[in-house]
Design a protein around this nucleic acid. Structure first.
Lengths: 146, 146
DNA sequence: TATTGTTATGATAATCATTATCATTTGACA
DNA sequence: TGTCAAATGATAATGATTATCATAACAATA
């Protein structure tokens, strides 16, 4: 974890940004909750426990900056709230999500799986793909069979 | 078009809903702009030209109802505004989108292309898929090569 | 160490897409 | 025609997010 933070610091510095204590606190929370798909408000509440002076606007700004730098991925499930995930290091594509309609759980697929599809899209539609978002809604293995 | 409206009316009636003049006006606009990915505000402005008494809240409610009944698909591109598309009749899956980062144009892919991926997801993750959303961000054929 | 200039912050106001509220209207049915 | 429940329109309210502004913090330089 400390090494990850050090590397994020270097990423920020390489673009003339600073890793302020507030930004570090946000990164720590994201690292401690890598599986959780936190909203900005979630992040704020968690950071505030350890860094009470932080402002909500700062959390939003930090998440936005990290998203622009592709350190963080911003996810929309269409419910009016954005979610933020630390991007896995070295990840060359956005991971996919399985959203359970029963329990609301969100599982992740790290595998790309879209290689063939992207080839078809690039060739048939002449579309130069930079990023993709794939979300499945359905019933998860926990709720399945009930 | 009239036949499509008649069929939508039947769909509504089969669930004890009415096709009021306001709802019909909304459906007409959606039918006339099938390729356009209209926001609720877009729909409202277009409907108002022909049906000036309509209220914005009614447009929202109508779009929401049509979405629940799967007559309309609600799309999120992560920009804070929902878009609404009439679902193609008989469509068994949600179509995909190509969003151009340069000009903002949104193109559609009607083909599923996800058959193999879905098989893998259902078997490996034991996830019973009900719906999916796939969006590609990149450079469209019009902006490509500039 | 002090100074300077720029970035970043926190509190809070503002914005905007959307939903809730309420009085009234409308449509279906007997 | 009367009744009742659904639907409407206007507008207030909501909540996620962004803008604003005074101030703090930080890095570089003398």
């Amino acid at each position: 974890m400390e090494q990850r933070i050090e590397r994020i610091k270097k990423q920020l510095h390489s673009q003339s940004y600073k890793l302020t204590p507030q930004r570090e606190a946000v990164v720590r929370v994201l690292l401690e909750h890598e599986e959780d798909h936190l909203s900005a408000e979630d992040v704020y509440m968690l950071v505030k426990e350890k860094y009470p002076e932080i402002g909500l606007a700062t959390v939003y700004r930090t998440l936005e900056l990290l998203t622009e730098l592709k350190i963080v991925d911003k996810i929309n499930f269409g419910d009016g709230v954005s979610r933020y995930d630390l991007r896995k290091e070295g990840a060359t594509h956005f991971h996919h999500h399985l959203v359970c309609l029963e329990c609301g759980a969100v599982d992740e697929i790290q595998e790309d799986l879209l290689g063939d599809v992207e080839k078809i899209v690039e060739q048939r539609w002449k579309f130069d793909i930079k990023d993709h978002r794939l979300t499945f809604h359905g019933i998860c293995h926990r709720c399945n069979g009930r």
